[in-house]
Design a protein around this nucleic acid. Structure first.
Length: 269
DNA sequence: ATGGCACACCTTGTGTGA
């Protein structure tokens, strides 16, 4: 089972890239972030034509997440069950933004919870938005902690807007204590891992210089001046199933790209 | 210290992102 996550920075601008990428990579599930569109403007038909069904939590102008799942052959009912969205989760800091969605995926003998995140950016350390980000992440950790009492197999993906370690940063001195790299952000991220989750990419790749986001400015992609802020976390119970974890830089080389690249795992399920 | 670049929006500037 291939699960992917991609911050597309506007689904309407990036639709052709996403459709082409789906046809080339045919993941079982693709989690999107930063749709920047209302539910009713989401291009459901284009995905249906490729054999995919989308669950969408949109919002005007900002945020927005979707989980796009391959339809099973010969099944009239879409098997993936929507479990939770920002709107249905109580306790997330106000105002409620379209930043989280969870679906239950049936397995032959079991089931898996897949959670798609667009973590707040945080603006700058010490700002109101930074406090909101930390509060949001702490609420996320409480939610995941509870779900881990219900599900053994949990996958949490998305744009975390946190580079977990200096190894995930092209220039650690430039980014020292800046937003995305600060100690408190890394601490809440590590708290999530401490609940029993594994950073799939880092568990299989020890070296640095692998990033998932590059600024549009200053030829950052060409210089590989990036950050690894998009992640696929898997629960401990899934560790024996992890075959591969990787970042697909190819879409970032295209014209009018998202500033993020897709991140993926292959699980033997 | 600033802006670079991209995107959405009742658009000709502003807010947000990372």
């Amino acid at each position: 089972m291939i699960i992917a996550s991609w911050n597309v920075n506007s689904i309407s601008v990036r639709l052709a890239h996403v459709l082409n990428w789906l046809q080339d990579n045919h993941p079982d599930h693709l989690c999107l972030q930063e749709l920047k569109c209302l539910d009713e403007k989401f291009p459901h038909q284009a995905f249906a034509e490729l054999g995919y069904k989308a669950h969408v939590l949109g919002e005007k102008t900002y945020n927005g997440v979707a989980i796009i799942s391959k339809k099973s052959q010969g099944e009239s009912e879409h098997p993936v069950l929507l479990k939770a969205t920002s709107k249905s989760l109580s306790g997330f800091p106000e105002p409620i933004q379209s930043r989280i969605m969870a679906v239950e995926i049936p397995l032959s003998q079991d089931r898996l919870l897949l959670v798609d995140l667009y973590v707040p950016n945080g603006s700058e350390v010490g700002s109101e938005k930074y406090a909101y980000k930390l509060a949001w992440f702490e609420r996320l950790n409480a939610y995941i902690k509870n779900e881990l009492t219900v599900y053994d197999k949990v996958v949490v993906v998305g744009d975390f807007n946190i580079a977990p370690d200096d190894l995930d940063v092209h220039d650690p001195d430039l980014w020292r204590d800046q937003v995305l790299c600060s100690k408190l952000e890394r601490a809440v991220f590590n708290d999530l891992l401490g609940l029993g989750m594994i950073d799939s990419f880092r568990s299989l790749t020890a070296e640095g210089k692998h990033y998932s986001w590059w600024d549009y400015r200053q030829f950052a992609f060409k210089r590989n001046a990036g950050l690894r802020i998009d992640h696929v976390l898997i629960s401990n119970a899934l560790a024996p199933s992890l075959q591969r974890a990787w970042i697909d830089k190819n879409p970032r080389t295209l014209d009018k790209p998202s500033d993020h690249a897709p991140v993926l795992v292959d699980l033997a399920l």
